[in-house]
Design a protein around this nucleic acid. Structure first.
Length: 586
RNA sequence: GCCCCGGUAGCUCAGCUGGAUAGAGCGGCCGCCUCCUAAGCGGCAGGUCGCAGGUUCGAAUCCUGCCCGGGGCACCA
């Protein structure tokens, strides 16, 4: 509809230019938007105000001129000049009738553009290190990413969903050693656990699984394990040196094969845990991209070679550096360490290149807010690799803080004192968790009120929306119980009977859903869907309380059922986008 | 010091990429079930859009400076 009105205005301008009433070289930027106040019609256009200055004419006068030349449209009932010079367009009853018909005919596809009508997007999200279970912070990234993926798809972008698995590097070694030490404990050895190790209960469970698979094969005595290790932090030594030495010791005692078996077991179990956790949360991926494979396939070398031949690498202090500063970053970055191992950033380079090769459109990153420093770095990387940095899009998800009983729930990762995503889901349920995570703008800190999320009362927005959907289904059940059937054709013919304020505002609200999908997708803002649904539900509840739908009059009843059915459909479609269920009964 | 996000009603937040008289939920107060689910509805109260300049027909929205809160600035991952 917005496009339709824009076209109408352009036509009018064309006539005026042809007739010499406006200069022919005119090419103004005009906007058509939804009005907030129904008194201003359904859509407003600012063209007259935009033209007023360059033409040195009064906006209202220009507005009158344009209105007179607007082409006829069945979807527009009338156009008025209002306020400082707005063109206010009133949608025709025909237009609103068409919207209801479209909703009922298209069903769950209503609001969606054909996939492929917009450029593809490769969306990477969550990508938490598989060194422990997901916590509530990851949950927000997961809910946001999954909702955004659905939203982009609905707007017509082909979407590839990816999880980048950091299955390589020192953190994973620390995980493997932590598991091994717990395993030794299970075998009956008394070994000291390093300050820097992963302490969570889950490590013991992984160790148990390793023991079930490998028996006592990996058992070594305490002396062999701890002999001659540098002191740990607790004993006045260096934590990092201590744990590195411990990793080396594990490699020696277990042999490379044995060590890899332990490492692989820990990794498999962790990744599988994350995968099922997310799947239960309705968050799925098309691909789990392994960092290790990136290394082994030589793509890091390839990316570095490309940077080098473009002259962006240099050697200093024994390390290989990327001249990021010259490409917009605030400092140069090491890509190969003094010890010859490539850095995490080198993997990022290779992955970036791989993504851009596989997706002709945009590579969209969802980061936690603490990763914002990566943005200039990766843009510099794209430039250095000879790629267009505008093909990268970064969305930063701010932190979520849990509140229980009005008190902030304290969490710290190190000590293993954190609430996992799984615990959160069990406490408040998947629907509430998904909704609460996306109901706020992702770039806004989130106060997650556990008590509110658990509440089964009207104050909980999730139930409020779901209740509206359930009520609608209940109406249709009642209809059948009374031995009646809904006749859509009769309803459509009688849609003109829906003249009450509630009915009109519901029709207007439904009509803007497809445009909401578009603008929310462009703004990467699924929270707008959440707000829209709440508003639609509110209007429905008001309507429900004000009118009886199942009246004796066939025309009126069917017309109302068309409207109510359409509301139910749009509620279900929107809830699906943000991963929340649309129950038919509550 | 530099960078990112935020500051809008008592609280939590929207504000559709610059529009018309700034909105919702919660909390507070007053009402509404012989009727399709009261997990609902109606009403009242509540505002210096952090502060100061600037840009323009028009600013909560864009620019600059300052104040406050959160986060980040590794040859860690």
């Amino acid at each position: 509809m917005r496009a339709h009105i824009t076209e109408m205005v352009h036509q009018a301008l064309g006539y005026l230019k042809r007739d010499g009433e406006l200069p022919s070289d005119l090419d103004p930027v005009l906007t058509v938007e939804h009005t907030r106040d129904p008194a201003h019609g359904d859509y407003a256009c600012n063209i007259a105000m935009v033209l007023a200055r360059p033409l040195k004419r009064k906006p209202r006068e220009l507005a009158e001129l344009i209105v007179r030349r607007l082409p006829e449209s069945r979807r527009v009932a009338r156009v008025e000049v209002a306020g400082p010079g707005f063109l206010n367009f009133h949608a025709s009853p025909h237009h609103l009738r068409m919207v209801v018909r479209e909703i009922l005919d298209e069903g769950q596809r209503f609001g969606q553009q054909p996939v492929g009508s917009r450029p593809p997007v490769l969306l990477e999200y969550v990508s938490a290190n598989p060194t422990g279970p997901l916590h509530v912070g990851h949950g927000r990234g997961a809910a946001y990413g999954a909702s955004l993926a659905s939203l982009l798809e609905a707007a017509g972008h082909p979407v590839q969903r990816e999880y980048y698995v950091n299955d390589f590097g020192r953190q994973m070694d620390i995980l493997a050693v932590s598991v091994w030490l717990r395993y030794l404990e299970l075998c009956g050895e008394t070994v000291r656990f390093p300050d820097n190790g992963y302490r969570g209960e889950y490590i013991i469970e992984i160790a148990r699984a390793v023991r079930a698979r490998h028996g006592d094969d990996m058992r070594h005595g305490r002396v062999a394990v701890e002999e001659d290790l540098p002191a740990d932090g607790e004993h006045g030594g260096d934590q990092e040196q201590h744990i590195d030495a411990l990793i080396d010791r594990a490699r020696q005692l277990l042999g490379e094969q044995g060590y890899q078996a332990c490492f692989a077991a820990a990794l498999d179990i962790m990744v599988e845990d994350i995968r099922t956790d997310l799947a239960e949360f309705g968050v799925e991926f098309d691909r789990w991209f392994s960092e290790r494979q990136l290394t082994e396939s030589g793509r890091i070398e390839a990316a570095l070679k490309r940077l080098d031949s473009a002259g962006w690498l240099y050697r200093k202090d024994g390390a290989l550096w990327f001249k990021a500063t010259e490409l917009g970053d605030d400092k140069d970055r090491v890509v190969v360490r003094e010890n010859g191992r490539s850095t995490y950033f080198a993997s990022d380079l290779a992955y970036l290149l791989d993504k851009l090769d596989r997706c002709s459109g945009t590579s969209l990153y969802i980061f936690g807010a603490d990763h914002h420093g990566y943005v200039p770095r990766l843009k510099a990387a794209a430039r250095g690799l000879g790629e267009d940095p505008d093909r990268l899009d970064f969305q930063l998800v701010q932190f979520a803080v849990l509140y229980r009983g009005g008190e902030k729930v304290q969490m710290s990762t190190r000590s293993g004192q954190f609430i996992t995503l799984r615990e959160l889901r069990e406490e408040v349920g998947n629907d509430a968790a998904r909704y609460f995570y996306v109901m706020r703008s992702h770039e806004q800190h989130l106060d997650f009120d556990l008590d509110l999320a658990k509440s089964r009362a009207n104050e909980n927005p999730v139930y409020y929306i779901q209740y509206a959907h359930a009520r609608i289904h209940s109406v249709f059940r009642q209809l059948e119980e009374r031995g009646l059937r809904h006749n859509q054709a009769i309803g459509e013919a009688a849609l003109g009977l829906l003249e009450s304020e509630h009915e009109q505002s519901l029709l207007r609200e439904l009509a803007r859903y497809p445009e909401l999908i578009e603008s929310a997708a462009d703004a990467r803002a699924p929270h707008r869907i959440a707000h829209y649904l709440h508003s639609l539900a509110a209007q429905f509840h008001a309507y429900y309380n004000a009118s009886v739908f199942l009246v004796d009059d066939d025309d009126l009843r069917n017309a109302r059922l068309n409207l109510v059915g359409a509301v139910g459909q749009v509620l279900a479609n929107g809830l699906t986008l943000i991963g929340v269920g649309a129950p038919e009964k509550m």
